[in-house]
Amino acid sequence: MELRHLEYFLMVSKELHFTKAAEKLGISQPTLSHQIKMFEQEIGYSLFNRIGKKIELTKVGEIVQQEALNIQGSIQSMSSQIEAFTKLEIGELKIAVLPGEITDLVSTLCIQFNQLYPNIKVFIQTTDQVEKAVLENRADFGIGFHLNQSSLLQVTKLYDEEFYLISNQSNGEQRVSFSSVLDGPLILFPSMHQCRKILDKTSYEVGKQLEPIVETSSIESILKLVRSGVGRSVVSRTLYEFYDTEDLSFQHIENPSLTRSVYLVMKKNCFINYAARKYIKLLVREIEKLCFHTDKDSITSLRSSIL
């Protein structure tokens, strides 16, 4: 079995189109088809169902795809280890992160990271499929919320955070019920935003309709509108801490409270390169500095394994 056969197979399994895969590989379509046929003969089974111009993976093809990804990951890990030992602070870092507040956290930390390691390029991939990006080696690690468990992934709980009701003036109360939050005009993120999904779900559970007066994906716009008195908003503590909010008042939400857990996800038994280790160390330090509610056992385990 040749490594190029795995490379060709993975590209076809990704594109599900021989011509497109051949173009990306820089070879002719007949050559690619011939190489895949040779690979199938070596495996002893068909890897693709061919239906006219369309193709799809067979069950055997799905098995081979997963194992080929593991082999590809091992090869990349070997290259990363060699590079880490020889170049140290030169390289790149790829992070997969869910859209929303965590993207702001990750992006803001890139400023500090760049000051410390200016020769390391950072690529932030915003995606709803954090686990898939890590499994397919498109990211060194990922950060997200409700992650699906996989036997191939190491998932570490970083911290729990709550959501605040923010306004331009204080009424003297530190806490507010969720029902009261819905009584006044609200300025919120769109429904696709992670914070909004939690609000929509909770509203449905308490039997109330969530009808914001303004929807915007810009946190700067939300804060500006709240300052001007147009309405109140609900934001995560991550956003509240990372933006200039000293002139705004916040209240803890209860009955029910709004909280979520933030997780770090990596491939199991995979080498963590120099850049990833340094960034995760910076991330953990920032979380602890902001006094987020961390899972001490998880953080301790994380430190001992990669930091």
Rank of each mutant, 00 (worst) to 15 (best):
L283M: 11
D140W: 02
T103F: 13
L93I: 03
Y159W: 10
L6S: 01
L186S: 07
L188E: 04
E205H: 01
V106S: 14
R227L: 02
V130I: 13
L186Q: 10
G52P: 00
D295H: 08
G184A: 13
I55D: 06
Q41G: 15
Q66H: 10
L182D: 12
R227I: 00
Q125A: 11
K289W: 09
L264D: 12
L93S: 03
L283I: 03
Q65E: 15
S298M: 14
F163V: 07
R232N: 15
G44C: 11
Y117L: 09
E92L: 08
H193V: 07
N49H: 14
S298W: 07
A22K: 08
D140R: 01
T31F: 09
S151E: 06
L10P: 05
F271K: 01
F292L: 12
S304T: 10
P118Q: 09
A21W: 08
H293I: 13
D297N: 15
N273C: 04
K121Q: 10
E205C: 00
D297H: 10
Q29P: 10
E89T: 12
P185F: 07
T294I: 15
N49C: 06
N168K: 08
S28D: 04
V214Y: 08
R196G: 00
L307W: 10
Q149H: 15
Y240R: 14
F113R: 08
V122D: 11
T127G: 04
Q169K: 04
T238K: 11
K278A: 09
M192P: 04
V206R: 02
L93E: 03
G184S: 15
S80M: 11
Q81S: 05
A139F: 08
A133S: 12
I253K: 06
N148A: 11
L116V: 13
I222D: 02
E246M: 07
V214R: 05
L290S: 13
L153A: 05
Y164M: 03
I287W: 12
K268T: 02
L182F: 09
L6F: 07
T58V: 02
Y8P: 03
V64K: 06
S151C: 00
F189L: 07
S228F: 01
R175A: 13
N168A: 07
V226K: 00
M1R: 00
M1A: 01
F123M: 12
S170H: 05
E56V: 11
L16V: 01
Q115G: 13
G207L: 00
G26A: 05
S177H: 03
K24E: 08
A275V: 01
N70A: 14
F39E: 09
S74F: 13
L302V: 06
E15F: 04
S228V: 02
D200I: 12
L109F: 12
E40L: 08
G91P: 03
S177K: 09
I222S: 02
Q115W: 12
P256H: 03
K289R: 15
Q35R: 13
E136R: 13
V214T: 09
F85D: 10
F18V: 03
Q149A: 13
E23M: 07
E2G: 06
V206T: 05
H34W: 14
S170K: 05
P185N: 10
L57S: 07
F39D: 11
N137K: 14
A139I: 05
L283R: 06
Q35V: 07
E23I: 05
G26Y: 11
